[in-house]
Every structure is written in C-alpha cells, then in structure tokens.
Design a protein around this nucleic acid. Sequence first.
DNA 1: ACCGCACCCTGAGCGC
DNA 2: TGCGCTCAGGGTGCGG
Length: 291
Amino acid sequence: MPELPEVETTLRQIAPFLVGKRIERVTTTAPSYFFITPPAELRKSLEGRQIEFLERVGKYLVLGLGEGDRLLLHLGMTGQLFSSEAASVRLLSATARAALPPEEQIHFKPDRHTHLQFELAGEGPQVYFRDVRKFGKVQWIAAGESNDRLDRLGTDALEMSAEELFSANRGRRVAIKAMLLDQSVAAGVGNIYADEALFLAGVRPGRAAKRVTRVECETIVTQLKRVLKRSIETGGSSISDYVAPDGSDGGYQDERKVYGRKGEACLVCGNEIKRKLIAQRSTHYCAHCQR
DNA sequence: ACCGCACCCTGAGCGC
DNA sequence: TGCGCTCAGGGTGCGG
C-alpha cells in the first residue's frame, strides 16, 4: 500500500480538486469494515460542507471541514484517491479493464469498490475513493473530539531525529525493522521504505533494535529521510495497486535497491538479495552489505 | 510492557 | 479451464 511518499503525492495532486470546494453530494457503498463512521451518517455530515484544508499525518489524510470538524482517511493497502477524470488505464488491473466496454476503459466509472464519491460544487472533476480490499478507513471526527488513531502516531518520519529512534530502541528485543514499521515511532514508514533505508544504512533488518548503535541510528534516519524525499520527487512507488490521483504511475519503483528484488543481484556487491519474514512482513536485504 | 500472531478483505499469478 | 495455493505497500486486538 501507499506509504508516506504515496500519501504525500496523493495529497499534493488531489488537494487542488478538494480544497476550497463545497461538497454537494456524497455517494457511498453499503456499510462495511471500511466505514468506521457509518456511511449514512457520513453523507449527512459531509453534504453541504466546505473543504478548508487537506493535510497528511503519517499515512493518514485529514480533510478540514470548518468549525473544527474533520474527516480522517487512510488508504490501507489498496486505497486509491483520485479524480473522476483519471483514465481507467492504471486504476484497474489489465484483466478487469479488458472486461469493460471501450468507453469505460478511457474514463473510469465507479464500481463496487468505489466506496466514496465526492460531488463538488462548480467546475472540476469529482473525487473518488476506491479500495478493493477495504483495509482503508474513513472516519468522521467532530470538532473537539480526539482520535485514537491520530493520537497513537509518533513523529512524522520526515521530521524524526536519530535520538528518537535510539531511545525508542532501548531495551527492545524486536527487529529494528519492526521499530521502523511502528507508527508510534516513525509515522509514515512502511514495508518498502523500511527495507530500502536499512539497506542504504547497511543494517540487517532482523537485528534486535537494542543492538543498533547510536551512530547506526543516525545513518538509518538520514537514509530513511533521503529515500522518502527522493520517492516523493518521483511521485512514489507504483508496485501493485498504487496510482497517483491523475491515474499515473510513480517512478520510485525503478530506484528500489532491495524491495521485491529477491534472487536478483545486489547492486553494490553482486550477491543475491534475500527475502525472509520479519515482523510478519516480507523483508528484503543483502546479507553481505547489511550487518 | 512487550511480543507474536490471527484477523479484516479481494484479486492476481502460478503450478498442476 | 479450473482449482487450490501463495502473495500483497496496513493496522488492530488478543492472549501468553
């Protein structure tokens, strides 16, 4: 799914279609795991409201609706937030696309996975939120209410310091990779960028967090920020489902050093990239370059 | 407090 | 063609 760079890319591209607009109508799918706030309640709360801002908090997006009301969005693994003018070309799989009549291959038509449709006042496209696996989330946060999900988040990965990582690691037997994936430690980091940052830092992802030195924490945090910033510059990684709001691919998948490269040669030393499960997530590393 | 694991859900790709 | 299996970028909640 979308990690920090993909969510940031989504934010930058979708903001012009949302911010300053009034929501005239909201269409949803039926109640499901996806809706933390029931869809009927959501429609009622949103219709007629003006969108004042859109911001990213870790991997979450927060819509500001005035008077302190907010809407929390999370893209989960397969969430896609995009303009209704985006073509179907990348939004659907090749097989799903082939099954459509030609006109729908050019312009995306909401399907059963399109859980939210924002019809906005004035010119400009509608905005759709589609999510096949429904691991995404949408929740209304009324003015003055706190939110557990947001409250649990630690420092945004782009802002974090080596000292924060080092002190979080203290006494922890879990893998350093698990620490990076922990959103209360570094908000926004996910599986791809955790693997990439640890490779660039030369640290084995399975090493116990408490065995990672202060100096190594410096390197990890430096490389992590570098990788995240570079990925934002290229529009994120499009590996399976992620597409930018205009339906285009990101570019960072072409710059990956280890993620998804199991069995291929390490670009530094030529040894085979290994894959194993760490923290229940598929993890890629070079046993020669990472200690 | 910490840790590992089951679970939420759908679809693609692969071997047979 | 079809079946069964594995895999997927995330996060929560439980029991030990």
